[in-house]
Computed example of a mutant assay.
Amino acid sequence: MSTDTAMQPASAALFISVEGLSKRYTQYAPPVFENVSFAIEQGEFVCVIGHSGCGKSTILNVLAGLEEATSGHVIMANREISGPSLDRGVVFQGHALLPWLTVEANIAFAVRSRHPKWTRAQIAEHSLRFIDMVGLKGSEKKKPSELSGGMKQRVGIARAFAVEPKMLLLDEPFGALDALTRGVIQDELLKICEATRQTVFMITHDVDEAILLSNKIMLMSNGPRAQIAEIVVNTLPANRQRETIHHDPQFYRIRNHLVDFLVHRSREFRPADYDNQTQPRLVRPGLDEGAAPIGDSGPLIRAVA
């Protein structure tokens, strides 16, 4: 059962609204991140990139309801997140499968939590649909010890999708996989998201992966006191393909912008860096950066051209 608390609607256009989020582990240490604010629309695929220690996974855990922020709050579909919920599916860096259960049973375990009144046949039918969706048909009766690393991660993705969450949270789910397997699963994820209009919040260290998968890329400054420095809008065509994406000149403009931030600007960023504002400004894509700020604490949005 969800532990989310009812709130007044923040905005009819927004699905996720993160406002003034900060996290401090002890009173004597500076916050890992502070005053983090951003919004996600329904159906968006958002990637977060930043150096280790900037609090990316902590923000994801707050969105999942697995960790509490020191200050600020997160509103999802007009309800404040205050604990775990089946409305949010999480895929961790490790597959986190139950080793004594088969592929089918691992997924059925999650489906049963979502639909406790379903019959065994209904649960099995539903589980098999998502097993097929991630390309594991024929491996239903195998246990995790009989699967490759990539196959285990597919089970984790299928399990998260099978509970039909309103939002999918991915914490570097492909980081430990070889390049070929990672590419196959990325393609599967894109197909599923296109078919289901799934909202996704994903952490990655892979710039090319972010450009391939996401609509927007959030760039975090270095911790402590990390912030969302920029939100870069991915202006490549929505139907981009791995085999041809690098032929578009825009790919390299975006990639160079992201790499430049990670190598140089992330280490030196301060909120005042952007036009002496106390917080980065929200700049609409397609307008120059002299446009008026929108809101008091919105991050800078750049359409890289």
Rank of each mutant, 00 (worst) to 15 (best):
M7D: 10
L128N: 13
A179M: 11
E140Y: 11
E188M: 12
I81Y: 04
F251N: 00
L212V: 03
E164A: 04
C193D: 06
A158W: 02
V74K: 02
C54I: 08
E125F: 01
T5F: 07
N239Y: 14
A272R: 14
G290A: 11
Q93D: 08
R265G: 05
S37M: 06
A292D: 09
V304M: 15
R159P: 03
L128Y: 03
A124C: 09
Q122C: 07
G149Y: 06
V304D: 10
R154Y: 04
T278N: 12
R197P: 02
L63W: 04
T196N: 13
R253Y: 08
P224K: 13
N215T: 11
N106P: 10
I59V: 15
I254E: 05
L63E: 12
D187L: 05
I294F: 15
F92T: 07
L98S: 02
E67M: 09
E146T: 09
G83V: 01
G83Y: 02
F130N: 00
S71P: 03
H51Y: 11
I245R: 15
R253I: 02
E164D: 02
F92P: 12
T204R: 14
P31F: 00
D296C: 09
S82K: 12
D206L: 08
N215K: 09
V62C: 14
S57V: 00
K142F: 11
P84S: 07
Q186R: 03
A158C: 01
G94S: 14
E289V: 14
I81E: 00
G135P: 01
I294L: 15
S22I: 05
F15D: 13
S148V: 06
E44N: 04
P173C: 08
E289F: 08
R284Y: 08
L147K: 04
T196E: 11
K117V: 01
E19F: 13
S127E: 09
V163Q: 01
E243V: 14
Q250F: 05
S52A: 00
L169C: 00
A96W: 07
D296E: 11
G223A: 07
H246S: 01
D171Q: 12
A12L: 04
E194K: 15
T204F: 14
L262F: 02
R242P: 05
E188C: 02
V304R: 12
K142I: 02
D206E: 09
A292M: 13
Y252L: 08
L258P: 10
T235L: 15
F109H: 03
R225S: 06
V36H: 15
N61L: 11
L170D: 10
E289I: 06
H115A: 13
A29G: 00
L97H: 15
W100Y: 01
F15N: 06
S266V: 03
K23N: 02
D178Y: 14
H51P: 01
I40T: 06
